[in-house]
């Protein structure tokens, strides 16, 4: 085969390799949700939150991290789960589906019955995301969502 045609085939193969999506066949997603109180007035870090402290601390200047609640929410495609965050706030998680190697997760926070926050996350297997900011006692609430494909 002429070198020119070999070069053409090599270029086409390289292009496909770069852009081809991996084959994924997942039906569920298991979300571990941690509700955390982050403080600037304390240096105490719960042992299971030491990783979080090193990730978030430099970005947000919080030094104390206390785990308030931890829940596991198994989700199927199209399914929704609820988690009570406080007396007047609740969290809903919905698995919308999978694309390439990411799970599309819709997350909403309600205060009383009013939606105050919504986000769509694209989560990789064993990936995580953190949402924070609402005031709690002398610090703020952090929500850490870690997920793995089922």
């Amino acid at each position: 085969m002429k070198p020119t045609y070999l070069l053409l085939i090599a270029l086409a193969a390289l292009f496909l390799l770069v852009n081809a999506p991996p084959a994924v066949a997942n039906s569920g997603f298991i979300a571990d949700v941690e509700v955390i109180n982050a403080l600037q007035t304390s240096d105490e870090v719960d042992p299971e939150l030491s990783g979080l402290a090193s990730e978030v601390g430099p970005v947000l200047s919080y030094t104390g991290f206390k785990l308030l609640k931890k829940s596991r929410l198994p989700l199927e495609i199209g399914g929704t789960r609820e988690l009570l965050l406080s007396q007047d706030r609740r969290l809903t998680l919905k698995l919308e589906g999978f694309q390439a190697n990411q799970a599309r997760l819709n997350l909403k926070i309600f205060k009383n019955h009013t939606e105050i926050f919504a986000t769509t996350l694209l989560m990789i297997d064993h990936g995580s995301a953190i949402i924070g900011g609402p005031k709690l006692k002398k610090g703020v609430i952090l929500l850490r969502i870690e997920g793995k494909f089922d």
């Binding site: 990730e55 970005v59 926050f117 995580s128 995301a129 953190i130 924070g132 900011g133």
Partner: peptide, 16 residues
């Protein structure tokens, strides 16, 4: 929308 320091996890900060 920020990222954490070490592993670049998404960090959403709500300023009420």
């Amino acid at each position: 929308v920020l990222q954490t320091a070490k592993t670049s996890q998404p960090l959403i900060w709500i300023m009420e």
